[in-house]
Structures are given as structure tokens and as C-alpha cells.
Amino acid sequence: MIKNPTTPSDTITITLDGQPITAKKGEILLDVARRNGAFIPTLCHLDGLTPYGACRLCTVKVKHGSWSKFVTSCNYPIWDGLEVETATDEVNQNRKLVIEALLSRAPKAPVLQNLAKTYGVTTTRFPNLDPAEKCILCGLCVRVCDDVVGAHAIGFVGRGQDRRVGIHINDAACIGCGACSYVCPTDAIDMESVTVGHFRDRWGEDRPCRYSLMGLLPGSVCHNNYECWRCETDQTIMDLCQPVHPVFVARGIDNAGVRSVIRKMSVMIPPDHEDCDDGSTDEATAGQQSPPSDT
């Protein structure tokens, strides 16, 4: 239920846990709440990615007069006069059940153990269907690959209880950037021994450096057998891009200034590609990756 604004100006007032606060009409509730100091946990939310509303952890209660409803704050646009409860027993009861349900999927994940401690969840009644599973189906990897990387190499397959994240179904589209692993809250994607292995199988001898596939470096070849986690270049770029993953830099979403620094890293440029400019880099990577989506 979205109310039309009653005040002509864009600035509206909502009540957050009893305190009146002002914000812009249509702003997302989670952003407003966090900005004003409320603690709302999330698992499937990441700034810059399309909100998904799947984990339901950020659910809060919104009220207006006698009307009330539980909504996910990560995608709820606010309106004037809205009253929000972010941490009542009722709201926390939902969080407990979400944590309990997800604990059955990934019992050892530190993020879930911490949440369980915070909310006093000690056991789970939900059946564990696959003890080897770590994925909680938050979909961050899928969205980062679709929305940021633009490679569309990962997707949900199946449905319902059989739903899983299809990681190595479309290896031909994977650029090995590792953004999926980077955003995964439960370390369910094994970049080092699994994903890179697939990547190596695909490219064989003709191995491009993953940073060239990301478009961060001019077309260059890997000289370290894809052992990125032991590669000096990799470490340098990772450090330069802190606190974000290089792919966010590559896509101009964050730390854009770093991009030009990386491009000048001569150590990575093989002799025959020395004078690559922006245009030819794009050409070199064309066909290996789809253009980033326009998010």
C-alpha cells in the first residue's frame, strides 16, 4: 500500500521506533533507518545491487493508523506519516525464524552464527537437506554477476526446495573476476580451488589475465597459471581497489580514480600490447564478456 504524498514538498516525516525523522519521499526504508541509527540486519542486500527481498531478515513492521503490515525494508519506498518498528519482539521473532531456517542450510557460516548469538537462536528445527551445502540462496552472486559484472555466468536453477545457484553451468561466460565469491556472505563459492580450475580448463594455454577480462588492464596474459591468490599483480590491484572488489572499480561503480592507476601498471603489459588504449582493450575483451548492464 503506497500512499500518495500529502505534502507538496519532497521532504516528509516518518516515525522510526517512536522518533520522528525527516527524509525524502520514496527513499528506501532501510537506507533511511540505517542513516538514523537503527540496527537492521540483512543477508541478501548490498548497496549498488537491485534489492531482492529474499532473505526477509530486514523485515520491519510499518503502520499507519489502524493499518499495519510486515514489509522488507530493503525495497520499501517510504511515504509521509509512515510509522516503523524495527526491533520489537514481533519483528525479532521473524528474524529468529529466518536465522533458524538458514542455519539448517549453512550451520557453520560465521555470519549466521553471529546472528544466532545476537538473536538468541540456539538450535534449528528445520531439516538439513544437504550437509555439504553452504549456500543460503541470497542471490548476491547472481545479481553481482548480472548487474555489475554483466557476464551473466551465474543463475538460479530449478525451483522451490530444489533451487540452487548454478555456478559452473555457463563457464564460457565467466570472466573469473571472483566478484561472486567476494559478495558471498557464507563463503559458499570456492574461487581458489574450484572456480579458477574451471577457468583454467576453459582457456588452456591461451590464458588472459582476469583483470584484462574485467577491462582493468589492457589485454594481457596470465604468467602465474591462474594462481591469483599468490600473484603479485593480483595483490597489488586488490590493495589499490580497497575497500571494494576490483570489478566494482572496473565497472566504474566505486573508486573510479583507481582505474587509471591500474591501467598504467606497466609490469602487466606484454610487449605486443604495449600501446593498447581504451578502445583496443574493449576490442580484446569483446566476445569474451557481455557489456555491463546499465544499472
Binding site: 531482492y52 527481498g53 529474499a54 532473505c55 526477509r56 525464524l97 529466518v98 531456517a101 538458514l102 539448517s104 528445527r125 528445520f126 531439516p127 537437506l129 540462496l137 542471490g139 538460479f156 530449478g158 525451483r159 522451490g160 526446495q161 530444489d162 533451487r163
Partner: peptide, 21 residues
């Protein structure tokens, strides 16, 4: 419903699994 749930959100996916069990 367990067979028809899309599996996106936790309460529906996990809740139906537990109820069915």
C-alpha cells in the same frame, strides 16, 4: 505448494519444507 514454491524467499521455501516434514 512445496513443489510449486519458487524458492526465492526464506519463509515460503523453508517453512513449507519443515511443515511437510
Amino acid at each position: 505448494l512445496k513443489g510449486e514454491s519458487c524458492g526465492k524467499c526464506v519463509p515460503c521455501r523453508s517453512g513449507l519444507g519443515l511443515m511437510h516434514e
